[in-house]
């Protein structure tokens, strides 16, 4: 029983990321409305960001900013600070994600102007005619 408890506590960050990822993927595949597909893509992105940031965490560690004070510099213990690399990667990924979301919304507006709808099947009908 305790093993199972530790098993769940030890890895539920991955579970949260996987569940979010599946919700996003389901939205991208199954939804008919293109805007909902874009929302699915954003949820997918959030899952990846959550995954990376949770990898960077260390138990009992603080944020990767050193106590500063020039001159009074001591040896740094790496275990006391969270891993900075995933934070760096996700920091840029978030802003780039917002920009790509902007491009997606612009394309949606253009599609709506041309076809009068953003429902996938209705667009396919107008293309066939």
């Amino acid at each position: 029983m305790e093993d199972l408890f530790n098993y769940i506590i030890g890895r539920y960050n991955y579970w949260a990321a996987i569940i979010l990822l599946l919700i996003g993927l389901y939205g991208m595949i199954a939804k008919n409305n293109l805007l909902k597909k874009v929302i699915g893509m954003t949820i997918f992105q959030a899952a990846i960001i959550l995954f990376y940031v949770s990898i960077g965490d260390k138990r009992g560690a603080t944020i990767p900013i050193l106590d500063h004070g020039h001159g009074t510099h001591q040896a740094i213990e790496a275990a006391a600070y969270a891993n900075p690399l995933p934070h760096v990667l996700m920091l840029t990924a978030i802003v780039v994600g917002v920009s790509t979301l902007g491009v997606a919304l612009a394309i949606l507006q253009k599609i709506y102007r041309v076809h009068g709808t953003i429902e996938e099947d209705e667009i396919l009908e107008t293309i066939d005619q």
Partner: peptide, 25 residues
């Protein structure tokens, strides 16, 4: 696949033992 990943907050996880320690130190 998540079973094989290091547990949450493990300081010895593969992501935290190579390059990141160099950056921190």
């Amino acid at each position: 696949a998540a079973e094989d990943l290091p547990s949450w907050g493990d300081p010895q996880s593969p992501a935290s033992v190579h390059l990141s320690n160099y950056y921190l130190e």
